[in-house]
Design a protein around this nucleic acid. Structure first.
Lengths: 217, 217
DNA sequence: ATTGAATTTACGTGTTTTACGTAAAGGAAA
DNA sequence: TTTCCTTTACGTAAAACACGTAAATTCAAT
């Protein structure tokens, strides 16, 4: 038996979803609520497994609600339901601590699936959301690859060696010792790197090294 | 009609997949090949829509093949089939330029679906792969959020202001001018930041600022 | 084979930044 | 009130940076 709470500021939707779930043997809708204050108060006293939260907008108010609930009820799994399945809203709610997101493509079956999944301690994202996130991720991977080998190819292997060590917080002296060269030479290499890449400061050089996977953050 | 090439170093598998596809009206298996050299040579003369590539391992040889084919035949869509659905192999092949990946959960239907999807110019990843990537992405999003507000809370707002400007490649003098304070004071602030966060070098300070979203890379 | 370009090495000189210590004024908290 | 932190700032020495110059070497190209 899974105990469920539903929150939606629109009474009609609230009743609809509530009715949808009440017919299922495994589920018990313990709380159906359209008032933010009532919701947080009630949740202090009763134990709920899954909270279904309908997000009409990504206001700070709404995001804060998620954050707050996660703090006050760490075991509670929050499932977001929203017709606005923009990247922004999905990412923000996930960051705020939601464990699942149902986009507008979701039906009764996926709602049930989501509730079971969350109850079992896993995350659930509906198909449209999965697509959204995946595309974003894939393109970030690809962008990653493109940014790589762009300017870095212009650096000599020696220059990269030195940039790498320096980017790992070694001093010029340490680098000089490791390569048996003079500190002045290390400085020269760094100067050449900066000139070649048109960097204005060493801060930029750190960023370059990170961007091009020469060093880890 | 979609023209397909299949490459697999195991003859048996090659024949199996080849037979699987030849029964479908929409598909034409133009080339079924178990030799790398023959594959690249033949692809120079014939136009193929989708190449099905069975990856038995993530050797540099295999990844290079993908890269090379993408250069020589930019229109060709490469679909990876592999029983090894580790994150590493998936990410590497995507980076190398593969447009789709079928994990071990894939059947004939998903193969067909993948081919159609690639032909239409979109990427395709089978369910297990989708899960794999999504989990990775989600956890990276969450890690992002966790790393934030960790140490940063210990810094005063003034210290953050100065770290931010410095992290945007401004000189101490510029920062001093902006806040109407002495350069020495700017230095002091930076010293205090380094002490407080136990950082060994300014390189570390850049990394800290990036990690904590004080500056962008 | 020779030229030309880039790399690697290194120094000079002056400026800026960092390291480490000290310190005073002001505010918040205990 | 005392204590702790912040913000301000200086002294001094060492390290790093900016900018220029330059020689030996390497490597690609003609």
């Amino acid at each position: 038996m899974i105990d469920i709470a539903i929150f939606d500021e629109h009474k009609l939707v609230l009743e609809g979803v509530s009715g949808l779930l009440s017919g299922i043997a495994d589920f018990r809708v313990v709380l159906a609520c359209d008032n933010r204050h009532v919701l947080t108060e009630k949740l202090k006293s009763i134990q709920i497994h899954v909270l279904i939260l309908n997000m009409h907008d990504i206001s700070v108010r709404n995001l804060n609600l998620i954050v707050q609930l996660n703090i006050s009820s760490p075991k509670l799994k929050i499932l977001i339901v929203s017709v606005i399945d923009s990247e922004e809203i999905v990412l923000k709610t996930i960051k705020a601590g939601a464990k699942g997101f149902l986009g507008k493509d979701s039906d009764r079956d996926s709602l049930m699936e989501a509730i079971y999944t969350l109850r079992n301690g896993h995350d659930y994202y509906s198909k449209s959301i999965t697509h959204l996130l995946l595309n974003r991720y894939i393109s970030s991977i690809k962008a990653d690859e493109l940014s790589q080998n762009a300017d870095i190819a212009n650096l000599s292997s020696r220059q990269i060696e030195i940039l790498k060590l320096w980017g790992e917080s070694h001093t010029n002296q340490e680098i000089a010792d490791r390569f048996f060269i003079s500190v002045r030479t290390v400085e020269s290499h760094k100067n050449h790197i900066m000139q070649k890449l048109n960097l204005k400061s060493t801060v930029d050089m750190v960023k370059f090294a990170i961007k091009n996977n020469i060093i880890e953050i």
